[in-house]
Amino acid sequence: MAEALATDILNHLNSGVIVVDEALVIRYWNRFLQIHSGRGQADILGKPLFEAFPELPKAALSRKLQGVLQLGTPTFSSWEQRRHLFLLPHSRPITTDSEYMAQNVSFMPLHQDGGKKVTHVAIIIDDATDVCYFQQQLNTTMAALEQSSRTDGLTQVANRRYWEERLRTEFCRCQRSSAAMSLILFDLDKFKLLNDGYGHQAGDYVLFTTAGLIKQTLRTADLIGRYGGEEFGVLLPDTPIQAAALVAERLRALIEEHRFIYEGQLLPVTISLGVAELRADVPSHEKLVTRADEALYFSKHAGRNRYTCAPVSEVAVAHA
């Protein structure tokens, strides 16, 4: 009676159950597996496990099963490490990206007749497709959230918080490894006049377009961020100041030559830049920003639409 009941329960379980003996020959499988694998009894019962299911990773799984038999302890396989062991189709073919059931699999030692020796291993297969699906959705959402928390809403380049975080990291890395590193700060010339003369929407258009144009010309390791209002920063890791000066000139020319047309009007747009590099006398990333800012200030006072390399002497600034 109890045995018939147990068999009945096993066949109603929403999990797959396979029992193998010490020689890893299949001695039992329940209805869940028959249904999901679509295979007949004759294909499975009495067949070696790896013959009946050739998709299984033989070497690793043999060793796991050996452990269960020898140590008498259970072992597990999680969908997070292996999406599936057995190739079984699942019941959500539309909503998931994999055609196979994600699985959590447990391998349990069985002792026959209450003896100490492990004679069989029960392999229990649980469908983790839903968990897997929701976890993937969560990951995608988290990635999108992280992206948006780093991005400036108007210009779609890094926001100040993220840009400064990266500046700090890169500064420490380059300082530690004695690598070169440069920083460009730039600012749109006479932006207030542009806003007043053509309207704030024209101003927004200039900010958005400038950031986009510059972002396209940078290398992947470089990072442009909106520092504030009409001021931007460009991080140039592993770049000495001579190379950074070339980049600054290229950016200046790019913006000067671009035809900014808003509602049929050609807008006068140029930028002024300041370049600074990591040196022994620049002890912090804040100081590096100050240096670049001083150089930018010099460019402004020397007539705009130009770049200046730090350090700038106080005399030079006074006379600019």
């Binding site: 070497a59 452990g67 302890t73 259970p74 072992t75 597990f76 999680s78 490490q81």
Partner: peptide, 28 residues
């Protein structure tokens, strides 16, 4: 140590396997 000779077992899986073995042999 686990006898995984090929690349079919990821680092995470090795770690869960060895952990499970250490914990359960003692706890049994």
């Amino acid at each position: 140590l686990l006898g995984y000779t090929d690349d079919e077992v990821t680092h995470t899986e090795q770690l869960t396997d060895i952990s499970s073995i250490l914990t359960t042999t003692f706890l049994e």
